[in-house]
Amino acid sequence: MKLETVLQRIPCTIIVKGKGFDELDLRSIVASDLMSDVLTAVDDRFLIVTSLNSEQVIRTADIVGAPAVLLVNGKQPQNGMVRLAEEFGITLLSTPLPTYKVCYLLGCFLESK
């Protein structure tokens, strides 16, 4: 799934354009507010969907090789989060939708393919 698809299907604002933003290909989606769980994901190159807006989300993304983070529930990033996303080249998005709705919309798209 292209990042572009996410941008088309989910109403969201782009906070940080990370490395390779225009051609970003996402292999899967991990939705969790627990970074400990994200760290156990087997894939890499996935989109993290979370309502946690701390620096640790970006650090976790960097460690597991997730190129993009989508904040849900209209959460705005904490100060350090933007700086760190820019430093690590990780794309940071924010949507007013809740986690379930985001997963539903993206899930429908993936099913239909």
Partner: peptide
């Protein structure tokens, strides 16, 4: 936990 840690997955992971 509110910081996203302490799920009891650290050592096993």
């Amino acid at each position: 936990r509110s910081l996203g840690f302490g799920a009891g997955m650290g050592l096993p992971n």
